[in-house]
Amino acid sequence: MELKKIHSHLAGIAASRRMLPVLLVGGFFLSLALPRLDWVDSYVQLIIMYIGINVILSASLNLVNGYMGEFSVGHAGFMAIGAYTASVLTVSVFPPGAAGLFFPLAVAAGGAAAGAVGLVVAFPSFKTRGDYLAIVTLAFGMIVKSIIENIEWVGGPRGFIGMEKLTTLPWVFVWTVFSLWVIRNLVYSRYGRGILSIREDEIASDLMGVNTREIKVIAFVISSFFAGIAGGLFAHLLQFINPRCFDILKSTDILIMVYLGGIGSIGGSILGAGIYTVLLEVLRPMGIWRMVIMPLMLVLLMIYRPYGIMGLREFRWFVPGVDLEGLHRPDKKGKSKTDALAG
């Protein structure tokens, strides 16, 4: 009876998990079709693309802030590096006309550049934690903005223009799915468990044989890599970037999405980014008052749900089979009698 129940439960999960690839393929074709068919206007498409970019941003920041439990406030800095790298590549380096062809390469290069800088930021995290590391990331964000403002050939404070509108719905879809997939894979690996254990108790983690330095480097590099990806997509959607696009307010936006959706949860990052982006648009008619209401809602949410909507929980679809099984595995050997354990 009991076993049967568990079995049917497992079967249910397996069945629904098989839906995921179907949904992904369907989603991709939908993203191809949407711009062609006249179902939704270009404004809605734009919002969808922003949601995708924001999902990448919040999921990647969640890796460091939610899963690893640090408090990075410089995520927009990595985004800026990705945005400028990708833009310079498509505008000045890759042959004009073929920019579209090289677009994925440019975005990936932006991610790689941001990831490389993430490596540098990982080093202070070996010794400092918590508030002091927060300051390091804050300072990093400010320094990136300052440096870009002082580089004349990318326009300095005036900004950089000339990008074609290469970010399209299918590209956003592909990059978002790819980012989520990779981040999810990382989270459900030994490195992911290392990341979580650093959040829970860094010293205990080290003493259980986890190489915490290696873990921190990986987390920071992956996190900043995807921030860079998001930056590249963002730049080729807006077709205009300046250092102020990536200031502390942008970082704050991403923070809000992460903590709104919930720390330590990919599903939460999706929800957080989606809800935040959509709400901002829905409330747009309210003018400036929308920015009065939004923070109030955030404060209320934090008071009533301090871990965010999905905090520390996850949609089953995102949990790999091995891990799901672990949660439901019926006890087979537990009855082995060992007198030492009696009592």
């Binding site: 468990r193 979580l196 959040r199 829970e200 010293i203 205990a204 330590g264 520390l312 672990g326």
Partner: peptide, 11 residues
């Protein structure tokens, strides 16, 4: 005791 408090027993 210094367990990883928010993780499952298995993890």
């Amino acid at each position: 005791i210094r367990l990883f408090n928010n993780l499952t027993v298995l993890d």
